[in-house]
Design a binder for these strands. Structure first.
Length: 456
RNA sequence: GUGGUUGUAGCUCAGUUGGUUAGAGCGCCUGAUUGUGGUUCAGGAGGUCGUCGGUUCGAGACCGAUCUUCCACCCCA
């Protein structure tokens, strides 16, 4: 016990059942991605540090896993730097690579690097693990999967409309009814900041506003004050705290607040466009909700901001997020390349489906039929039939050892195998098979043809 | 990164103010039943009590460190 091996904090092993369930989610998402015309790419699990560092804010930098250089990396560190004990400075010298933190920044790098081979607008999807050196909590891991769909090379708002539909399509296909797609717009946030004279404090302002439903109006105001936003500015925000009603009436109020801001008006226009289109097109199971307090992951979003909340009653952080970023490739030296994308948090979706018991029972199915092994002669006879069954598309298996019947039957039972075939001397002499239904317990001696038609 | 919390058999958990050989249920193995599983009955295996150190005549229990779990911040899928 003392030597029992373990895995790092925030990581997990997956057993066959879990992998089957995860694959079910992957393939459901992938199906919808492809239906919407996205194409897959993959990027390395680690990137050059400079590709990632500084793209997610200070907090993000802290959460990036750095990879130590190979060789005698300390020999390159100057003594003076060593004595300074400045972790950030030394990290830059001893670590030149880092594990990917999300899929969006590597994608931006990919677009810039391969710009001459890519046909724009480029719609790509990507389903790969990402790593964050965060403290684990429920639904928060240090290694988890994101499933991203992004479009680059088009500023058309129809993309946002399509992405809302994509969210709806995926969650509908997963049977996850009642999700809320929250939408906001960076331009509205910056417009509000402008109106209250806090343009330079946009991030602080939005981070505080984002907490409204969590910590309440008073604490949000206090946090804004602490961050240096003026009292008079905060007073001008008052209508925002009481904003309510449907999309249209919220828009109406926002128009009044943002009358003086060109940026803000543009944002409202964009939101209205998306809402009008979605109203016309309709959604299957999700609903689109304007949420002006939505302000996650703002470091690169410039237009629409999305976040998906699980159905009411499920205690889980957001299960998806995304937005429009006009300047992302700009950091890598490529101008005028607008992108918009959304992300699905596979691991959280898994937890939600598990909690609501929404995995189809068929997900667990492993094999269709198990042949009981009575000895070498019987095994050979069985394998001839098994070969045919496999060709017909049945997942078929022979128990490898001529173990006791009880053990073999028990094995079939525990693996939830629906049918068992028994072949002994009796059957061999008659060119027959005894097929047993493990659920009903019924069994009968049949020919291979009957066996196949029964299984079909 | 800050504050708190958890860890006893494969799993879920008991274990009194520190006191012999640490228990239960489920699961597992064997047999009743050498070509018939899920039910039943009988028997059996399995724990250096997360790890390391300390206090004590004596530690699963008390103290410290560390790892892990979960939670609240921070931030986020």
């Amino acid at each position: 016990m003392a030597q029992k091996p373990s895995i790092p904090k925030g990581t997990r092993d997956f057993n066959p059942e879990q992998v089957a369930k995860r694959n079910y989610i992957f393939s459901t998402i992938q199906n919808q991605f492809e239906k919407f015309g996205f194409q897959p790419i993959e990027t390395p699990s680690f990137e050059n540090s400079e590709t990632l560092m500084g793209k997610y804010g200070d907090e993000g930098d802290r959460l990036i896993f750095k990879i130590l250089n190979s060789g005698d990396y300390l020999s390159k560190v100057e003594n003076s730097l060593f004595k300074e004990k400045d972790s950030n400075k030394i990290t830059q010298i001893i670590s030149e690579k880092a594990l990917r933190y999300d899929l969006t920044v590597p994608f931006a790098r990919y677009v810039v690097q391969h710009q001459n081979e890519i046909e724009f607008p480029f719609k790509r999807y990507q389903m790969q693990p990402v790593w964050r050196a965060d403290r684990p909590q429920k639904g928060r891991f240090r290694e988890f999967y994101q499933c991203d769909a992004d479009v680059v090379g088009s500023t058309s708002l129809w993309q946002e409309v399509e992405l809302v539909q994509l969210y709806d399509a995926v969650f509908t296909a997963l049977g996850l009814n009642g999700t809320t797609i929250k939408i906001n717009n960076r331009k509205i946030l910056s417009g509000i900041a402008e109106v209250i004279g806090a343009s330079d404090k946009l991030i602080d302002f939005t981070v505080a506003l984002d907490k409204l439903d969590k910590i309440g109006e008073e604490k949000v105001k206090q946090e804004m004050l602490d961050k240096g936003i003026s009292q008079s500015g905060i007073e001008r925000l008052q209508p925002l705290f009481t904003l309510s009603g449907d999309f249209g009436s919220q828009i109406k109020e926002l128009k009044a607040i943002l009358n003086a801001s060109e940026d803000g008006k543009k944002g409202i226009e964009e939101l209205e466009f998306i809402d009008n289109a979605i109203s016309e097109l309709g959604l299957q199971t999700a609903r689109l909700q304007l949420d002006v307090t939505l302000a996650r992951g703002l470091n690169y979003y410039t237009g629409a901001i999305f976040e998906v909340a699980a159905p009411e009653g499920v205690n889980m952080g957001s299960i998806g997020g995304g937005g429009r970023y006009d300047d992302l490739t700009g950091i890598f030296g490529m101008k005028d390349m607008s992108g918009v994308g959304i992300s699905f948090g596979l691991d959280r979706i898994y937890l939600v489906l598990e909690e609501l018991d929404l995995f189809p029972v068929t997900v667990n199915k492993n094999i269709d039929v198990l042949f009981i092994n009575f000895g070498d002669k019987e095994a050979l006879y069985s394998l001839k039939a098994i070969k045919i069954l496999r060709d017909k598309g049945f997942n078929t298996e022979l128990y490898p050892d001529a173990a006791k019947m009880k053990k073999q039957m028990n094995h079939a039972n525990k693996r939830n195998i629906p049918f068992v075939v028994l072949v002994g001397e009796q059957e061999m002499s008659k060119d027959a098979f005894t097929l047993k239904n493990m659920i009903s317990g019924e069994q009968s001696e049949v020919t291979l043809d009957t066996l196949i038609s029964t299984l079909t």
